[in-house]
Amino acid sequence: MSSKRVFITGIEGFTGRYLERYLRGLGYEVSGGALSPSAPHHARLDLLDKDSIKAAFRVKFDYIIHLAAVSFAMADPAEIKNANEIGTLNLLDTLSAVKFQKAIFASSASVYGGGDAPMSENSALNPQSIYAQSKIYMEEQIARSGLPFIIARPFNYTGAGQSENFLIPKIVRHFKDEAFVIKLGNLTPKREYNDVKDVVRIYEQLLKLEANDEIFNIGSGKAYSIEQILQILRRLSGRDIAVQSDAKFIRTNDPALLVCDTAKLLNYGITPCSGDIEALLRLMLASD
């Protein structure tokens, strides 16, 4: 059991909720911040307000895991840039005056764009969205900060409780509701859809590494098309659903493949995500 103290930004977001529960189960002391905190041990944290950050950091911590961000790639571009760029600068400025052992910053595999082969941490960056550009900017500022850091680049992941703004929860909801039709964009690009529980496990393992100033992909090396996801859900649910193509969901620059090279995780003794999409979809169908 650990007695280390961890502060999580975005602690009440999708990933933050899973991460807090997982770390507490391992014996960590966990605190964190959210824009509108709902728990007594959660502080108000607005990354666009330096005084808010300083107030939240009055609690002592050994590690910080920075999850707070606008992570919905189709959100308002100004909102993305404010949260992911200006918010990062404000956070780094405040952290420079705080004593702690290590920070993990959640970036995104979207920085790679995509390609014909699995993406390693050394693959060329080719952002295809404002969201991906904001994550590259974040990484650049972190690298210049002089702070002890690990940058994590998770490939797509999901799970019960994720907002239905995101693709897999949206599709699962339509099957749960026994809908006859769903409006979607491109069905053929292949992406990873990993389990959030695997992602938070790997975050905790990265905390314990001796390594600093490193970048780690978080993924499984297993990718699926939306057509494959639909086929699995049809089989699991015993229901059919028709697909209507909707231009507003189609991205003209959508790469055909974005999949993780997991070699670096394995080299550090960390088990990658399982990539067991059928088990994950079965769990999401059964969840409330």
Rank of each mutant, 00 (worst) to 15 (best):
K81P: 03
A83Q: 09
A83I: 06
N84Q: 09
E85A: 04
L89Y: 03
N90Q: 03
N90R: 04
L91T: 00
L92P: 00
D93R: 11
T94E: 13
T94K: 06
L95M: 14
A97N: 11
A97C: 12
F100D: 01
F100A: 07
F100C: 06
K102C: 02
A106L: 09
S107K: 03
S107H: 07
S107F: 03
S108T: 12
A109C: 11
S110C: 13
V111W: 02
V111S: 01
G114P: 05
G115H: 07
A117C: 09
P118S: 12
M119N: 10
E121I: 10
E121Y: 06
N122W: 13
S123M: 09
A124C: 10
Q128D: 13
Y131S: 01
Y131M: 04
Y131W: 04
A132M: 04
Y137R: 06
E140G: 07
E140V: 04
I142N: 00
A143I: 14
P148E: 08
F149D: 00
I150Q: 00
P154W: 00
F155M: 04
A160G: 11
A160S: 12
Q162L: 13
E164T: 09
E164Q: 10
N165S: 13
N165F: 11
F166G: 03
F166T: 06
L167H: 06
F175K: 02
F175T: 01
F175W: 02
F175L: 06
E178M: 09
E178I: 03
I182V: 13
I182R: 05
G185P: 10
N186D: 15
N186Q: 14
T188K: 13
T188L: 14
K190P: 08
R191V: 10
Y193A: 07
N194H: 08
D195Q: 11
V196A: 08
D198P: 02
V199E: 05
I202F: 04
I202A: 03
Q205P: 10
L206I: 06
L209A: 11
E210I: 12
N212H: 15
N212P: 08
I215Y: 09
